[in-house]
């Protein structure tokens, strides 16, 4: 049964792809092998077959055969939309494609990359380099697969979306999505928040629930300077702007993590001073607390404030008395 269906779908693809003109349903039912039964049966079969082929990304064009008789619809697959032509691939290019596809370690793009290679007739075995030789899997798994799909749909169709975002300020967001960016194994969405009219960056893993497309609001255009705008937004995320000098006290014989990244000088018989720079005070505060009694932050004040913020959450609002 399944073989007959597969055979019919392949025959239908071949017939529609080979035809220079639109084929009517009656021509299809009469000529394409596999359409057997009453008219109602083959009609239903054909409707399902079109859906199956479209779900494979095969575009079935619908048009009229004669401009004077517009009610007679026909179907065809244009060779331009069906196939991809990237020209012949050199062995080096085959290597690059194998390596590029081998980087992925997630469900959504990992599977797609393997499928893309076989579609492009790339046999990884003929590549001079094995992807596993590179040993890099810098793109990590991501739980936001459904969000990525919806957001790519929205960016392509220029459709605003809304979602609930887990943050301290406010939760419900309506945005014009501009671009997705993968950084350090996490996906970010750069978008214009409609309510405030400003560009914002959202981490996909902090989107709770569904991402809804809102075609009723309006469509939008991407800003011409998108690349620069996205780069600026992502630089905020990377926190590359400020390098802060940090001074801490570290117990002798402890805190190797800090000693390794800074200048060490003696403080007294029990403690040493360690001076180093950081781009992320929040993370440094966290690392200092992790060392418990072995490390005490000295400077800057923002670091001490961060430590205060984290620790005060842990003592349940009870005042501490000396």
């Amino acid at each position: 049964m399944s073989d007959r269906k597969v055979e019919r779908l392949i025959n239908l693809t071949l017939a529609l792809l080979a035809s220079k003109r639109y084929l009517t349903k009656s021509e299809i039912f009469e000529n394409v092998a596999g359409y057997e039964g009453s008219l109602a049966t083959v009609e239903r079969m054909f409707e399902r077959d079109k859906d199956e082929l479209r779900s494979l990304g095969i575009e079935i064009e619908v048009g009229t055969l004669d401009s004077y008789f517009e009610d007679e619809l026909g179907y065809r697959i244009s060779p331009q939309s069906y196939g991809i032509d990237i020209g012949p691939l050199t062995p080096t290019e085959i290597s690059y494609l194998s390596l590029a596809s081998g980087l992925w370690r997630d469900q959504i793009f990992g599977t797609s990359a393997i499928r893309a290679l076989s579609k492009l007739s790339v046999d990884p075995k003929t590549a001079p380099l094995d992807p596993s030789d590179l040993g890099l899997s810098l793109i990590t798994s991501n739980p936001s697969a459904t969000h990525i799909e919806t957001l790519m749909d929205a960016i392509e169709s220029r459709t605003p979306v809304s979602f609930t975002y887990d943050s301290d300020t406010h939760r419900d967001r309506s945005v014009e999505p501009y671009q997705l960016t993968l950084l350090r194994g996490a996906w970010y969405l750069v978008a214009r928040e409609i309510e405030i009219g400003e560009l914002r960056t959202f981490k996909l893993e902090r989107i709770t629930g569904e991402v809804s497309l809102n075609p009723d609001i309006h469509t939008f255009e991407l800003p011409e300077d998108l690349t620069a705008l996205v780069a600026r937004q992502m630089s905020f995320i990377q926190q590359e702007s400020e390098l802060t000098q940090v001074l801490i006290k570290v117990k002798k014989g402890a805190g190797a993590v800090f000693r390794a990244k800074g200048i060490v000088r003696e403080c007294d018989h029990e403690w040493d001073f360690v001076e180093f720079t950081t781009r992320d005070l929040r993370e440094t505060a966290s690392e200092i607390i992790w060392q418990t009694e072995s490390v005490i932050a000295q400077k800057p004040q923002e670091l001490i404030t961060q430590i205060h913020k984290i620790l005060s959450q842990k003592i349940g609002g009870v005042k501490v008395h000396d």
């Binding site: 990304g57 060779p79 939309s81 196939g83 991809i84 797609s112 499928r115 492009l120 007739s121």
Partner: peptide, 10 residues
């Protein structure tokens, strides 16, 4: 000719 690539494949 190879079939066109889906968006995720691209």
């Amino acid at each position: 000719k190879p079939r066109s690539l889906s968006r995720n494949e691209v």
